[in-house]
C-alpha cells in the first residue's frame, strides 16, 4: 500500500445490527427463453471480501448488476445494505461503490479534476461516522497516481487507468464495493498493487464483492469464494477450506507394460503401495499429483457445463454451509 494512512481513515463504524451486507436468496434471471441464473443464493458479512468465481457466461456480471441495482431480476429475494436494489434510492446508492471498467470516457478530464467532481456528489451524504467524499489528493496518493494527478485521463496507461477506476469506485467511501473483473488486462505488478488496495479496504470494514476468472487472484484475496457455474452457486466457502478440500483428491499416473494409466484417489499412498504389490516391476513412470484448487474448479465447471452432473452431486460440491 502506498498510503496506509489514507486508507486507515476510510474505516466507517458500521451501524450495529446490520452485519449481513448482502443477502441473496433464490435469485433467478431469465433472458427470453434462457435461464441465466437458476436460484443463486449467498450472503456477505461486513468487512468480508467475497470473490465470485466462474467461467465466462456463468452469470457473474448479471449477478453483480442485479446487486448494483442496474438490472431487474426475474425472481428471488435480494437485499443489499438492507435495501432491495430494485428500489434503492440515491441515499442507498451513496453507500455503494462500483468500480467500472473504463474505456475512454472522460478522456479530456484531468485525474484530480474528475475525482473531485465525482466525489462532490457524495457530499450531501456525509455523516459524522463516514466523512464523504474522500479528499481527492489523499485518494490519488492511496491509489498511487500522485504523479499523474494533473494528467488527462485519456493519457493514462492501462494499469493507471484501472487504479483510477478503483479510485472513482471508492471516492464516496462506500460501505460495499463491487468490482467486476477489475484486474483483466493488468500486468502482474499492477495486479499485485491492486490486491493490496482491496485488502486495505477490507481491513477497514468495507465489504468487497468482486468477480474474476483468475483462481490465483481469488485464492489470494478472498475471505470466501463462491463458484458460480451453470446458473448456480456450486461452491461456497472460505478460500483455505476450498483449497484443502480441493487437494484431498490426488491423481496417480503410471504405466504398466508401457501402457499409461490414471486414477484419482483420496489416499494416494495406500493406492501406490497396492499398485506395487499387485504388479511389481511392471509399473513405471509413476507420478502422484495433489489436485490444485484450479484442477477441482476446472473439473467442477467442465462437468457442470457438460450437464453430466446430476443436481444432487452438484449440490454435494457445495460446502462451507455453516458460513451462511
Amino acid at each position: 500500500m502506498t498510503s496506509a494512512h489514507a486508507l486507515s481513515e476510510a474505516g466507517s463504524s458500521p451501524p450495529p445490527g446490520h452485519d449481513r451486507v448482502i443477502d441473496v436468496r433464490d435469485l433467478r434471471m431469465r433472458y427470453r427463453t434462457q435461464d441465466v441464473l437458476k436460484g443463486v443464493g449467498f450472503t456477505a458479512r461486513r468487512g468480508e471480501v467475497v470473490v465470485l468465481l466462474g467461467p465466462n457466461g456463468a452469470g457473474k456480471t448479471t449477478t453483480i448488476e442485479v446487486l448494483e441495482g442496474f438490472r431487474m431480476r426475474s425472481a428471488g429475494d435480494v437485499s443489499v445494505l438492507g435495501t432491495d436494489p430494485a428500489r434503492g434510492d440515491e441515499r442507498w446508492r451513496a453507500r455503494l461503490g462500483i468500480v467500472l471498467q473504463s474505456w475512454r470516457d472522460h478522456g479530456k478530464w484531468r485525474v484530480r479534476e474528475l475525482l473531485a467532481h465525482l466525489g462532490s456528489y457524495y457530499a450531501p451524504y456525509s455523516t459524522d461516522l463516514v466523512r464523504r467524499p474522500w479528499d481527492a489528493d489523499e485518494l490519488i496518493a492511496a491509489v498511487g497516481l500522485t504523479g499523474q494527478a494533473d494528467k488527462r485521463i485519456g493519457t493514462l496507461s492501462g494499469g493507471q487507468r484501472r487504479r483510477f477506476d478503483v479510485a472513482v469506485g471508492i471516492v464516496g467511501r462506500p460501505e460495499l464495493l463491487f468490482l467486476d473483473e477489475p484486474t483483466a488486462g493488468l500486468d502482474p505488478e499492477a495486479r499485485n498493487e491492486f490486491h493490496g488496495l482491496v485488502r486495505g479496504l477490507a481491513d477497514e470494514n468495507t465489504t468487497v464483492l468482486l468477480t474474476t476468472h483468475d483462481l490465483a487472484e481469488a485464492e489470494k484475496l478472498a475471505d470466501r469464494i463462491l463458484i458460480l457455474a451453470g446458473g448456480r452457486i456450486v461452491a461456497d466457502g472460505p478460500a483455505e477450506e476450498l483449497s484443502r478440500q480441493a487437494s484431498a483428491e490426488a491423481t496417480v499416473r503410471w504405466t504398466r507394460d508401457g501402457r499409461p494409466f490414471e486414477e484419482s484417489t483420496p489416499e494416494p499412498t495406500r493406492f501406490v503401495r497396492r499398485l506395487f504389490e499387485e504388479h511389481g516391476d511392471a509399473i513405471g513412470g509413476l507420478e502422484v499429483r495433489r489436485a490444485s484448487l484450479e484442477d477441482t474448479y476446472l473439473t467442477m465447471v467442465r462437468e457442470l457445463e457438460a450437464g453430466s452432473v446430476p443436481e444432487e452431486r452438484a449440490a454435494a460440491h457445495a460446502f462451507g454451509e455453516e458460513a451462511r
Binding site: E68, F70, E90, R91, R93, A94, L96, I98, L100, S102, D105, H106, L118, Y121, Y122, P124, Y125, V168, G169, G172
Partner: peptide
Amino acid sequence: RAKAVPHG
C-alpha cells in the same frame, strides 16, 4: 459512471 454516483 454518472449512474453509479448519487444523482449523477
